[in-house]
């Protein structure tokens, strides 16, 4: 009960904070449009409308991930700088309950980016928004958002442990785009990449979303996205105490 409250209020609090920052910044508005445009030109070659929607959806989920990986790193760098990280750690609540809503809120903001990408593609490039299985689609979107938030949570735990880890967040942004199959089908990659993709929740998320939009029910992939996401949460929970212990030992919770 207590846990649910802290998570829910934390999410609400972070959403409020994020709405006042990224929505004010033009970048947050322009990025998705940029993704959608790139995706359109990559697939324009085919006249068929299905590949267009395929890539538009990829670009849309890319936006969710981009709204999580890099921002999670910079948010923690900022909290360190502002001294709020120390205050959060000094609170008696399990620190995971502070981090998880932060990254989930970030991926939630990504829904805006997703919607903007799809609408831009539809309005400017005429990419049709025909969804084969609307119910599965409506379930696939939050599942994907939650699982991407969970991946961000694991990254955030690393950011707590290593002061320079925000660079890792930046570094991971593009590889995850690629090996989750946001842009190009996974079948184009060499075989050894595939197991890595399977470990990434966004892979299942995008499969679930595309499946629901282009083919039909995709509950298996939705389940996988949620399952892998839950595994991230467990991993993060296991690592967070160690990360904090190390940060207390090294004195890396603040900048000074």
């Amino acid at each position: 009960m207590r846990v649910a409250r802290v998570l829910a209020y934390g999410w609400f609090f972070r959403m409020k904070m994020l709405m006042r920052s990224s929505f004010n910044s033009w970048l947050g508005v322009l990025y998705p449009l940029f993704f959608a445009t790139v995706a359109f030109f990559m697939f324009k070659a085919g006249a068929d409308s299905k590949p267009l929607l395929y890539s538009s959806l990829g670009a849309a989920v890319m936006g969710v991930w981009s709204n999580t990986a890099t921002p999670a790193g910079s948010a923690l760098a900022q909290e360190r700088w502002h001294g709020t990280l120390e205050l959060e750690v000094a609170a008696p609540v399990n620190f995971a309950l502070i981090l998880l809503p932060l990254t989930i809120a970030m991926s939630t903001i990504g829904i805006y980016s997703m919607a903007a990408t799809l609408l831009w593609g539809w309005a400017v490039f005429g990419i049709p928004l025909q969804i084969t299985d609307p119910v599965a689609f409506v379930l696939a979107v939050p599942a994907t958002v939650a699982s991407i938030g969970a991946l961000g949570f694991v990254l955030a735990v690393a950011f707590v442990r290593f002061r320079q880890a925000w660079a890792l967040g930046n570094m991971l942004e593009y590889p995850v785009w690629l090996i989750s199959g946001f842009l190009v089908p996974l079948s184009l990659f060499p075989g050894w990449v595939r197991p890595i993709s399977w470990l990434l929740a966004p892979t299942w998320g995008i499969r679930a979303i595309r499946g629901a939009a282009l083919a039909g029910p995709s509950y298996g992939d939705i389940g996988m996205a949620l399952g892998v996401g839950a595994a991230y949460v467990v991993l993060g929970l296991l690592l967070v105490q160690r990360a904090l212990h190390a940060a207390r030992a090294k004195g890396t919770l603040s900048l000074t």
Binding site: G10, F13, W81, H82, T84, V93
Partner: peptide, 21 residues
Amino acid sequence: RGLYERLSGLDNLRYFAELYG
């Protein structure tokens, strides 16, 4: 330092009230 700048004083207090149970 140590405050969430973009939010109100009340938001700051409410959040920590939750964290402190």
